[in-house]
Structures are given as C-alpha cells and as structure tokens.
Design a protein around this nucleic acid. Structure first.
Lengths: 160, 160
DNA sequence: GATAATCGCTATGTTGCATAGCTTTTATAA
DNA sequence: TTATAAAAGCTATGCAACATAGCGATTATC
C-alpha cells in the first residue's frame, strides 16, 4: 500500500525548494478551490438548472436592467460567441428578454422577465447557502480578506 | 454608449443586498481569478507545451518518484479515466516512465525520465515567473494569506 | 464617401471533467 | 477454498467552458 516501502523501485527524490512545491503554488490551489466551488454550486443550483455562468448572467442583468449584451460580455469576461447561445437558452426558458435599442439598431438591451425577477431572491438565497457551505472553514473576516485578494488578482487586467 | 441614458427602456433596477451582489460572491471571484491564472500559465508554459494539469502531474511525480498512478489521481483530484491518456501522452513525449510494481501487478509506478528531470528546474522557474506576474498586485504577506485560505477551502474535503 | 470599428451571431476545435463499462489483479469473507 | 468485493488501469463517450475564424448588419471615424 505504500510505494515508499518498495526498495527495488525509484531513484532518489529530487529535492525541491519549498516555494517550488506544487502545493505551494497559488495557481494550483486556485484551481482546486475553484473546482470545488463549481462542483458545490452545481449541486445547490441543480434544481434551478442554473450553472455558474448562467447565474452570473441573470444576476448581472438583474442588477443592471437594460444592460447591453456586449457590455454583459465585457463584465463577465466572456466572448459574444459563447454568450449568444446562452442568451438564447435563457430567453427560451422565459427568463430573459431581449429588446431592441431605440438609437442603435445593432444593440440588444437585456432584462429579466417577470418570472425571473420573481425567482431571483430564492436563487440568491441558494447561492448564499452554497457559499456558506464551501467556505465553512473560513471566518467572516477571512472571507472578506479572500474576496479582496481575489479581486486584486483579476480586476482591471484587461484594457476595459 | 450608455444604456442608463436610455429612458424608454428598462424598468427599475432591482435593489440587491450588497452581500448578494455578484461581485461580492467569492465563488465568482474565484472563478475569474482562476481563469486569469490558467490563461497566464498557458502563455508562460506554451513553449514547453505544458498545461496546468500536465505540469501538476510532472511536479508531483518529481517530488514523489515511484508514486502510483492511482495515488497521483487522488492527490490531484482527477479520475483515472482522465489521467490515463495524459500519462500516455507524457510517456510518449519521453517525460514519464511507467514501471511495474514488484508485489502488485495492478500497479504502475511513475517516475520522471532523465530528460524530464533535467528540464524540471527550468519549468519550475517559468512557473515562478508566471505566479509573480499574475500575483504582482499582492504583497508577499498577502500571497501567504491567500495560499492559506485557498488550502482551507479545498483540502481534505473528500474521504481521502 | 471610404474605411474602420462595433454588435450579435454561426461554425468549429480544444480542453477539463463526468459517467459507464470493461479486464486484470488483489483483498476480504463465507 | 471458493465466492465476492474492491482496487487498478483503461476505453468510449458526452457535456460544458472557452477559443478562433469569419459573417452580415450597423454605426463611427477619417
């Protein structure tokens, strides 16, 4: 059960500087933590059939009704190529409305439907439960710190 | 250019509790930060043709020569179904050796080849550069804090 | 008025990760 | 000891996130 007990096998372990070890890399730990969060989100929001991306879209449209599709892409860091089918899906499910812009005929203005507006509070509560679960080992203060540090990493990295 | 200037359009913005706003959610920020890191990693390690997953495999094998494939799966949180083709790729590229276990014929013991062992230091330096770049807005202390909090989130979540 | 940029979109490929199912081998229990 | 369960490694396959290339329509800019 323990390969270190095998003496026929491998050569000497390469001694690696502590800061170079895999588990000391923030990128690796980011990936692992994010994967766990993604997973837990999927479990909690399974009945609502919402994934992290679709929820993010709905949440932002809810917070900024009338937002343009292109602006939604920018805010969420998505390509419009990937946004388009997702918006179509949400529209078909009766959650998002696409209205033409009066001045600029290229633009679509997005808004939640009545049904989506009514459902959002419950979905937000579910997301809160999800966050409380996968962050249960962190204190309130630690969560605030984590939030600040994560924002520092990715915010305002593009030309915006 | 500013949809808030449009007065024909959307209804009132749903007022959302600050802690419920999308950008206050740690899961969302985790995903964004992780995506940025993944991207930066790909740029830095493009010439080495290493992705985060393959690098993680090599790094762990380097740190624990003779590790079994199943144990590598457990450590990296991967399914063996996904590990298998990656190991085959690394073997074909002459980076990983698979040796039979003396006592248990189901088991494969993994080790880096000479070539891989020789290349690892340079790759580790590249990863260090990558981390220094996408974490440039964080102090050393903040990086240590972030590392600790991320580990708290995902470590020892499974049955292990 | 010509050129460039923006917007929304389709098509398509890659990658990470999931499940289902299989064979071989070892561990455990009747 | 034999039957059953578990572990190891693998193939096949599907899905979701993300990327690029390119298109038509519209608007902005020179």
């Amino acid at each position: 059960m323990d390969e270190t007990r095998n003496r026929t096998g491998p050569g000497k372990a390469t001694r690696v500087a502590p800061e170079d070890r895999l588990d000391a890399q923030i990128g690796y730990n980011l990936r692992r933590a994010s994967a766990l969060a993604l997973n837990d989100f999927a479990v909690e929001l399974a009945d609502a059939a919402l994934r992290p991306v679709t929820y993010a879209m709905l949440a932002l449209i809810d917070e900024r009704p009338g937002i343009r599709a292109a602006e939604l892409c920018r805010q969420l860091g998505m390509k419009s190529a990937n946004m388009a089918p997702l918006l179509a899906e949400l529209e078909e499910r009766g959650l998002v409305e696409r209205d033409d812009h009066a001045q600029d005929r290229r633009v679509q203005m997005l808004a939640l439907t009545k049904a989506a507006k009514q459902a959002m509070p419950a979905w937000r509560r579910q997301v809160r439960r999800h966050e409380d679960r996968f962050l249960q080992r962190l204190t309130k203060k630690e969560r605030a710190t984590l939030l600040r540090l994560l924002r520092l990493i990715w915010s305002e990295d593009g030309p915006n």
